Computed example of a mutant assay.
Amino acid sequence: MPFSRRTLISSGKAREIAQACRAAQVEVAVFANPLTKHQRAVLGDIFGCLVISGEDLLAPGR
């Protein structure tokens, strides 16, 4: 299944990651790829946790 611009990953992979995040009680999921604000929000809703990208870790005050 192709990736979605909305999430940067396929819907099946998003469900798989969401299940793993909930099972491990993850508070923050970090993506290596840059994410838009919209992608972060959508993925956060799906995963049930804060979602950031690696570039967020390097940008002061972001």
Rank of each mutant, 00 (worst) to 15 (best):
R6M: 10
H38A: 14
F3R: 15
F31R: 02
T36D: 09
V42I: 12
I9V: 15
K13Q: 14
E16Y: 10
L57Y: 08
R6S: 12
S53N: 12
P2N: 06
L58C: 11
R62F: 10
Q19A: 14
R15Y: 04
G61K: 11
S11Q: 12
A24H: 13
R6C: 04
V28S: 05
C49L: 09
P34L: 03
C21A: 14
H38D: 13
A59H: 13
P34K: 04
C49F: 05
A23G: 08
L50D: 04
I17N: 02
L50W: 02
R22L: 06
L8C: 14
R22D: 02
F31A: 02
A20V: 11
G54L: 14
P34S: 09
P2F: 03
R62K: 15
A59N: 11
E55D: 15
M1D: 11
G12V: 06
I17F: 05
P34I: 03
G61A: 11
G12Q: 07
A24R: 15
Q39Y: 03
V51L: 07
C49S: 09
E16P: 01
G44Y: 02
C21V: 12
A23K: 14
I46E: 05
K13Y: 07
P2G: 03
L35I: 03
G12Y: 06
E16H: 11
Q19G: 06
G12P: 00
G12A: 08
K37R: 15
A59W: 09
E27Q: 15
A59M: 14
E27F: 03
M1Q: 12
A29M: 11
L58H: 09
R22A: 05
R5T: 13
R62C: 10
D56S: 10
L50G: 03
P2Q: 06
T7W: 02
K37N: 13
I52F: 03
V42G: 02
A18E: 05
A18Y: 04
N33G: 04
R40G: 04
L35D: 00
A32W: 05
G61T: 08
R22K: 15
S10N: 12
R40H: 09
A18N: 07
L43F: 05
A24C: 11
L57N: 07
D56L: 04
Q25P: 00
L43E: 00
A29Y: 03
F31C: 01
E27W: 03
A20P: 01
P2A: 07
A14D: 03
E55Y: 13
R15A: 12
D45Y: 06
F31M: 03
Q25V: 10
S10M: 07
C21G: 05
R15T: 08
Q19W: 07
Q19F: 11
S4K: 05
F31G: 00
A59E: 13
D56Y: 05
F31H: 02
T7L: 12
K13N: 10
D56V: 05
R6G: 06
S11V: 13
A29W: 02
L43R: 01
K37C: 07
A41K: 15
I52D: 00
G12H: 07
E27M: 07
P2S: 07
D45H: 12
L58G: 04
N33Y: 00
I17M: 10
P60F: 08
A29S: 09
L58V: 15
R40S: 10
P2Y: 03
F47L: 15
R6I: 08
K37L: 13
